[in-house]
Amino acid sequence: MGWVANIFDSLRSLKIQQALTQSVSLGVIITWALMIWKCLIGLTGSESPVVVVLSGSMEPAFHRGDILFLNMGKDPIRAGEIIVFNFDKKKIPVVHRVIQLHEQRDTGDIYIITKGDNNDIDDRGLYAEDGHLWLQQHHIMGRAVGFLPYAGWITIILTEMPVVKYLLIGVLCLMVITSENRSLNISTK
């Protein structure tokens, strides 16, 4: 574990100028991540272009910890598509499939019923909790277009075990501060 000792050695010999350089490069990394995220929001038209599945209601298609890529697109929603919706922005969004759809002739408004593949009943009870009879366009955050298994587990672990999160952030910061002009390596992760 000599590298730990090295880290503390270099911490001690830290100079102000070096510290400034490192904090700037840390800022650059954070800004990059934010820029990519905002660009994705613009490109997909979905307010959260990447979501992690938290429940088993869509099994066997999606399991807990899988990642979904969302896209709103210009095409109207149709039956069979998997959409992400919530009635209240404060609540966790739901990923379910459209099983019934009515599109009004004059206004183009849509009235939808969804259901989780692994659930026995449709989501009408869920809508009633929030005082709705149908799901409508403005409740929809996006439709699922792509799928990546398991990759979301890291965020589930980070949110459900905050200790791991702070530990990880701490170690990363320490590495950035102590490494000499090697901060770019971290961004490639």
């Binding site: 066997p60 298609a61 149709r78 039956a79 069979g80 499939r97 099983i99 019934q100 759809l101 009515h102 599109e103 009004q104 002739r105 183009g108 593949d117």
Partner: peptide
């Protein structure tokens, strides 16, 4: 391919709605 989700929907027009899609049966 992990799975294919298949469903049969009744689709029709009404004076009020340009499109109605009602899923009748589905399977994985």
């Amino acid at each position: 391919t992990k799975q294919v989700f298949v469903f049969v929907a009744a689709e029709y027009e009404t004076p009020q709605n340009a499109l109605n899609q009602v899923s009748l049966w589905d399977g994985i």
